[in-house]
């Protein structure tokens, strides 16, 4: 099914068509800022040409959304499973509270990427960013994997301020030897060769099947690995009264 849209098309029109069609493959052309595309969707393949609006693939529960263009804020909010592939940049709060599935971004991602990501049982969310990210990466992260590959070409730092604030689970791999910014006390940083970590290698190899990056070259470098020191960071803070 092909849905042709323009700036006059309201998001409810696009979304009800996507929701109600029995077809499994849907292509949306001319998308320009329409929000909530693919919200709560499962078992369908969505191809978006253009610029989807905020909350793309919120509560996504399986299936795949591919964006040929940039995505805006809150992509994959509270996503449970499935895949979102973005052939451009993503906005703020990408993967908010995501519990499963993967978000692969070719370019950069905005503020608060992967905030409050969590994992549970077989659900283990993954976000891979080809370029750089804004401040508050992995804030309150409680599980899952975030990879930042730093393939951006401007001279901006690979991560920004307050990376890992409140982190109490999961892991962040940042493709650099020395972090450009300080990280909080409750997060520990170690440096490893990318190819020596199986989890990271598997993820980067999978990521490179979508984009024309060289997995071997990407992995043949040092990564700083961020992990929380404690899964109970607030344990000592309280006194019963």
């Amino acid at each position: 099914m092909v849905i042709n849209t323009d700036s006059e098309t309201h998001f409810t029109q696009i979304n009800s068509q996507v929701r109600n069609t029995l077809e499994k493959e849907i292509e949306i052309n001319g998308c320009i800022g329409q929000r909530y595309i693919g919200t709560g969707l499962s078992g369908k393949k969505l191809k978006i040409n253009g610029l989807p609006g905020n909350a793309l693939g919120a509560y996504l529960n399986g299936g795949e959304i591919t964006v040929y263009g940039n995505a805006q804020d809150a992509t994959g909010d509270t996503m449970n499973s499935g895949a979102i592939i973005i052939h451009g940049n993503a906005g703020d709060t990408t993967g908010y509270a995501m519990r499963g599935g993967k978000i692969y971004i070719r370019g950069n991602s905005g503020y608060r990427t992967g905030i409050h990501m969590k994992e549970y049982g077989e659900h283990k969310p993954i976000i891979v960013i080809g370029g750089r990210v804004g401040s508050f990466l992995g804030e309150y992260q409680a599980g899952g994997v975030i990879v930042v590959l730093g393939q951006h070409e401007d001279d901006m730092p690979i991560i920004n301020n307050f990376c890992g604030t409140g982190m109490h689970g999961g892991v962040i791999y940042i493709r650099c030897k020395k972090l450009p910014k300080v990280i909080p006390d409750q997060v520990s940083a170690t440096v490893v060769k990318g190819s020596s970590v199986k989890e990271l290698s598997d993820i980067v190899n999978d990521y490179c099947t979508y984009f024309n990056y060289d997995a071997q070259e990407l992995l043949n470098a040092d990564f700083t690995v961020l992990k929380p020191n404690s899964s109970n960071p607030y344990k000592q803070m309280y006194t019963a009264n």
Partner: peptide
């Protein structure tokens, strides 16, 4: 809650 056992839920 769909979170790991024993980890703080914040």
């Amino acid at each position: 809650r769909m979170i790991p056992q024993g980890v703080d839920a914040i």
